[in-house]
């Protein structure tokens, strides 16, 4: 059933966009359990078209433009996390690229506590 639902998710898209009519048609014909799984797979598929960018400070429009160039055709969603102190975290299709000062400090403390 999992493979069939994955195929249905593929069929729900038209030119890279989710087709509402197709989604409603499919959803009406699924059981409650399969519908929940179908929605979960749709969310996963949507996440593949999104890039989450987190930084310590609000990014300038220039920086946003640079990131957009790295991920053409993707939806870049930006958020702020002051606890990072400095640095950036990019999450793209289940991969996370991160370099931030807060974690570096923690790593250094961990390193010093185990090495003399």
């Amino acid at each position: 059933m999992n493979k069939k639902l994955k195929n249905l998710v593929k069929e729900s898209y038209n030119n890279g966009q989710l087709d509402q009519e197709t989604v409603v048609y499919i959803a009406a014909r699924l059981s409650r359990k399969d519908l929940k799984h179908y929605i979960s797979l749709l969310k996963q598929e949507e996440a593949k078209h999104e890039v989450l960018v987190t930084s310590a400070e609000k990014l300038s429009s220039e920086d946003v433009g640079k990131i957009q160039k790295l991920y053409p055709g993707m939806n870049v969603i930006h958020s702020v996390d002051k606890s990072m102190i400095n640095g950036v975290r990019i999450v793209e299709n289940n991969k996370e690229y991160e370099i931030n000062l807060n974690r570096t400090f923690h790593d250094i403390i961990g390193f010093l506590s185990t090495h003399d």
Binding site: S40, N94, K95, E96, E98, D107, I108, L112, H115
Partner: peptide, 19 residues
């Protein structure tokens, strides 16, 4: 002196969520 052996690697991790 103690930090001379420390190396910093930018982290690339796989992320997911609890189902």
């Amino acid at each position: 002196k103690r930090l001379s052996a420390y190396t910093e690697d930018p982290k690339v991790q796989n992320v997911g969520k609890v189902e």
